[in-house]
């Protein structure tokens, strides 16, 4: 008796044959949940293939995670059949770089800006626009979701800055 392949197994097979080894470690954890790994530079090609050939049209979100040596960027894709496919792209922490996928799916724009602000990932080709979600005066080169980011130092620095501003204001008030 032949067993019918599940949709997750079909997806795994399609990814393996269609992308010739670009997507690795494809694991089916449970019904509707498929996880996989890839290299940072292959994300754009894989995304294009998934959207054109495999019918993925909904990017749920992008998660960035600081894993020490590497920054892993997880693309969570939703399929009409209910599958939630996670593509985990590995980039080096020292030089985390990715090509934008907003030209393929414009809905990715805020998720990519989040990677830039919170993790310091260099997303190339991102359309011009306001930063998200940190304030415009947030210090350059600081990325709060990096494990090495020191929240206590940031708070002390901003308190010092505020105290300096207050002192100038008080001095000016005396001059009046």
């Amino acid at each position: 008796m032949m067993f019918k392949k599940t949709k997750e197994e079909i997806l795994k097979e399609n990814l393996e044959t269609g992308l010739k080894g670009k997507v690795t470690d494809i694991t089916i954890r449970r019904a509707n949940r498929v996880y996989s790994m890839c290299k940072g530079e292959d994300v754009w090609d894989i995304t294009k293939y998934m959207m054109e050939k495999l019918g993925f049209d909904y990017l749920c979100t992008i998660t960035g995670a600081d894993c020490g040596e590497t920054i892993n960027i997880l693309y969570h894709w939703g399929h009409k059949d209910g599958t939630l496919f996670t593509l985990e792209a590995v980039t080096p922490a020292a030089k985390s770089e990715l090509k934008t996928i907003t030209d393929l799916i414009p809905g990715a724009v805020y998720y990519e800006r989040e990677l830039v602000d919170l993790l310091g990932v260099n997303v190339t080709g991102l359309p011009q626009g306001n930063r998200y979600p940190l304030p415009d005066d947030f210090p350059q080169g600081q990325h709060p979701l990096r494990k090495s980011w020191d929240a206590a130092k940031y708070i002390k620095d901003s308190e010092d800055r505020e105290a300096a501003v207050r002192k100038i204001q008080e001095d000016n008030a005396c001059r009046k």
């Binding site: 919170l118 626009g129 306001n130 930063r131 998200y132 979600p133 940190l134 979701l145 929240a151």
Partner: peptide
């Protein structure tokens, strides 16, 4: 229309 968001960002994930 140009949007600017993030005024309510409270760093919950961190």
């Amino acid at each position: 229309a140009t949007l600017r968001l993030g005024y309510n960002h409270r760093g919950v994930e961190k």
